[in-house]
Amino acid sequence: MPNLPSEELSHLLARIALRDRAAFRALHDACAPKLFGICLRLLRDRREAEDALQEIFVKIWHGADRFATTVGNPSAWLNAVARNHAIDRLRQRKARYDGLDSARELADPAPGPEAQAITSDDGRRIDDCLGRLVPERAEAIRLAYVEGETYLDLSQRYDVPLNTMRTWLRRGLLQLRDCLAPVA
């Protein structure tokens, strides 16, 4: 989250686990814009993103103790709660529309990671590591993670069999892990 340091976020999450509503409000004010941005990007539907955002904060209220009992990166945890929820909604929607034309258009590939202005060291590091992968694999990883595309979407986009796509992503992920090794 851009406007609060990690320590402050961890403190707020610990207070939320103690059912401190003022801390919850402060966290909401600080983090709702980023989490809403994630919902909008993945769901591409403002109304659904609004519903999702509320669900996400309900999960944060109930689940803050799970973060507070671990040592971690609070903004990554919050982002993961949001992304997970949005992805679940996408996959449910997908199941509902199975057999019909998906209501969701394949997104145009957004600018690749190298075009993004990422200021943090972590951002530069992952960009650097993505840059070492075969370009299509790096892009497929980004499309899955940031745009919510499925194996099927990706295999159609790159015109390769589903299993091949899955292999691309698995190999790409393992290469990424090796490149980012200090995190693990």
């Binding site: 903004s75 990671p113 990424l176």
Partner: peptide, 8 residues
């Protein structure tokens, strides 16, 4: 590991 990709 992957979280920094959300910076965009």
């Amino acid at each position: 590991r992957l979280d920094p990709m959300l910076a965009e």
